[in-house]
Design a protein around this nucleic acid. Structure first.
Lengths: 102, 102
DNA sequence: CCAATAGTTCGGGTTTTCCCGAAATAAAAA
DNA sequence: TTTTTATTTCGGGAAAACCCGAACTATTGG
């Protein structure tokens, strides 16, 4: 490949990461679901019945969204209450705003 | 798995597709590059020197962005002038706005 | 203590993504 | 007509994503 001079900026890497979190319809569904129920927070069991995927698969999508920072889970055994991470949600929103505003 | 009642909405599928187009830093770079040069449109050769990937790989990223509708290429052999697709850009922007606005 | 419940982790299969270099394409320049 | 130039397509390899069912973890209720 030989050496190239420039690589991606931090901003570009971060935007790609946010986009990746949103790049699967199941994850978009989860975020929609959590946003629709901001008042109550949700258990993963509330979502699995609405989705055409196995519990374990849902669990992995939740993990990805957590890693991306878009959601958080409050452990309250044997339940885990999920909700949007407002702070990072706003950051993601601002980044996408900036990106598309031109 | 048994039969599940609900699947993803059109909106959710479309959002996931847009996000997927943005989910790789090389593609974010390309869009940034085209947006920075709205006046002139760009050749793929203008971009390859700034990127740590082979020409053929760049070409495939361009194809993906074209399929997602975010860019368009005007053939002007042996060059191809690329530019943002303003119409779809605005649509994507509106969808993301709506998604994050809550 | 034992069973039930909610959710995660593990092992593994299939598909998709990302990337490359080599070959192909197609028009312009020599 | 031959060569050069800009880009795409092809073949293929490596890595990641997606999905599943089975096994595991941890707590609560009986």
């Amino acid at each position: 490949m030989a050496t190239k001079r420039k690589y991606y900026t931090e901003e570009q890497e971060r935007l790609a990461k946010i986009a990746k979190a949103l790049s699967n319809p199941a994850r978009v569904f989860i975020l929609d679901f959590l946003a629709k129920n901001l008042d109550k927070c949700c258990y993963s069991g509330d979502m699995v019945d609405e989705l055409p995927i196995a519990r374990s698969t849902l669990s992995e999508h939740l993990k990805e969204l957590k890693n991306a920072g878009l959601i958080q889970g409050e452990i309250n055994p044997p339940y885990i209450k999920y909700c949007l991470n407002r702070e990072n949600w706003m950051i993601a929103r601002a980044m996408l705003d900036r990106f598309f505003d031109r």
